[in-house]
Amino acid sequence: MSVTGPSRALGRVFDRVADAYDAARPGYPDELFRALGEMSGVELTGATVVDVGAGTGISARALRERGARVVALDPGREMLARLVARNLSSSTAEPRGQGVVVAVQGDGNALPIRDGGADLVTYAQSWHWLDPAASVTEARRVLRDGGAIAAWWNTTDAGRADWLAAYEVRLAESCPTYWGPALPEWNVPQIAAALPVEERWLRWTRLVAVDDFLLDLRSHSYMVTMPQEAADELVAMQRAELLRVFPEGVLTVPMRVYLAVGR
């Protein structure tokens, strides 16, 4: 399926940082997938899952490891190239009984999936980039009876660590297009406004090297839009401040995942 309009532009934005995204974006805790099965009523083993905005495959791989057949859809050619490379490099080491991942370049507002072909449609860090009405209409079209729509977002939990709150404030002060917990109006994307959902917050902790944490920062859209010199200066400032608090170079980052499931 060809990708046009806003989806193609979005694909170009993240294609520019595909390597950073693939190397440094965090995964998800096991509890997320346990909660997903409980809230959706869908057993992941053997399920057909359309993972919209799959990026480099962080969520798609986790779903595959739990036995799902995953259609990983993304508008970004370079993002999907990383997903395919990861999938191929790990396929020979996978135990029998695990699922599969198929990469498809496409638009989440016009899914290239037949009616009633999926048990789950998922959006990991992605639903907010789509048209709220069109994307949910398409998700409903491709779901079988008893299927579910699920969206989740990893966020840092700045309220649990002063150093992290200060880090977010520095981002807000230095990056004109910053969107995050340092802003009083910030919130996770409200998919609940588009369909009835059950919601849950899950806490976890990420251990990560300072340089990987800052590589993750570079993969965010508000950093991509900054002039390169300004972005480099911001990263250097953040590195100095983080190393002052964590001189050993390893961060303990409080995280939380917001999960919303509509059945």
Results as ranks from 00 to 15, higher is better:
residue 161 A to K: 01
residue 236 A to P: 10
residue 71 V to W: 04
residue 149 I to T: 02
residue 184 P to D: 15
residue 129 W to N: 13
residue 87 N to F: 04
residue 258 Y to M: 10
residue 192 A to Q: 11
residue 19 D to P: 04
residue 19 D to R: 09
residue 183 L to E: 14
residue 179 W to E: 04
residue 59 S to A: 15
residue 196 P to Q: 13
residue 13 V to L: 11
residue 126 S to A: 15
residue 113 I to D: 01
residue 152 W to S: 06
residue 62 A to V: 03
residue 234 L to Y: 02
residue 36 L to R: 05
residue 216 D to I: 04
residue 175 C to K: 05
residue 123 Y to D: 08
residue 41 G to H: 11
residue 263 R to N: 06
residue 114 R to L: 12
residue 128 H to F: 14
residue 209 A to E: 15
residue 48 T to E: 00
residue 48 T to H: 10
residue 241 E to C: 07
residue 14 F to V: 06
residue 89 S to T: 13
residue 194 A to W: 07
residue 165 A to T: 09
residue 158 A to I: 15
residue 238 Q to I: 08
residue 248 E to T: 12
residue 211 D to Y: 09
residue 116 G to F: 00
residue 139 A to W: 08
residue 175 C to T: 11
residue 237 M to N: 13
residue 110 A to F: 07
residue 226 M to N: 07
residue 99 G to L: 04
residue 199 E to T: 14
residue 218 R to I: 02
residue 9 A to Q: 11
residue 60 A to K: 01
residue 237 M to A: 14
residue 155 T to G: 09
residue 225 T to Q: 13
residue 184 P to C: 12
residue 2 S to Q: 14
residue 139 A to N: 07
residue 252 T to R: 14
residue 249 G to M: 11
residue 115 D to K: 02
residue 180 G to E: 10
residue 192 A to E: 15
residue 10 L to D: 04
residue 106 G to T: 12
residue 170 R to Y: 01
residue 256 R to T: 03
residue 6 P to N: 08
residue 87 N to L: 07
residue 221 S to N: 03
residue 147 G to Y: 01
residue 92 T to L: 13
residue 244 R to G: 13
residue 123 Y to S: 05
residue 213 F to V: 06
residue 130 L to H: 07
residue 132 P to W: 09
residue 144 R to I: 08
residue 243 L to E: 13
residue 129 W to P: 03
residue 108 G to Q: 03
residue 157 D to M: 03
residue 57 G to Y: 06
residue 219 S to I: 08
residue 163 W to N: 06
residue 72 A to C: 11
residue 173 E to L: 10
residue 136 V to W: 02
residue 183 L to D: 11
residue 221 S to R: 00
residue 141 R to E: 11
residue 209 A to Q: 11
residue 260 A to L: 01
residue 239 R to G: 05
residue 99 G to R: 03
residue 182 A to W: 10
residue 98 Q to H: 06
residue 14 F to T: 07
residue 144 R to Q: 10
residue 251 L to H: 06
residue 170 R to T: 01
residue 66 R to A: 14
residue 39 M to Q: 03
residue 27 G to D: 13
residue 153 W to H: 10
residue 90 S to K: 02
residue 165 A to C: 05
residue 144 R to T: 12
residue 15 D to M: 12
residue 214 L to R: 00
residue 217 L to A: 14
residue 152 W to D: 01
residue 172 A to N: 14
residue 81 A to C: 01
residue 30 D to E: 11
residue 110 A to M: 08
residue 158 A to N: 05
residue 61 R to K: 07
residue 5 G to S: 12
residue 62 A to C: 07
residue 147 G to P: 08
residue 81 A to V: 01
residue 171 L to W: 14
residue 157 D to V: 07
residue 30 D to S: 15
residue 164 L to R: 14
residue 58 I to H: 02
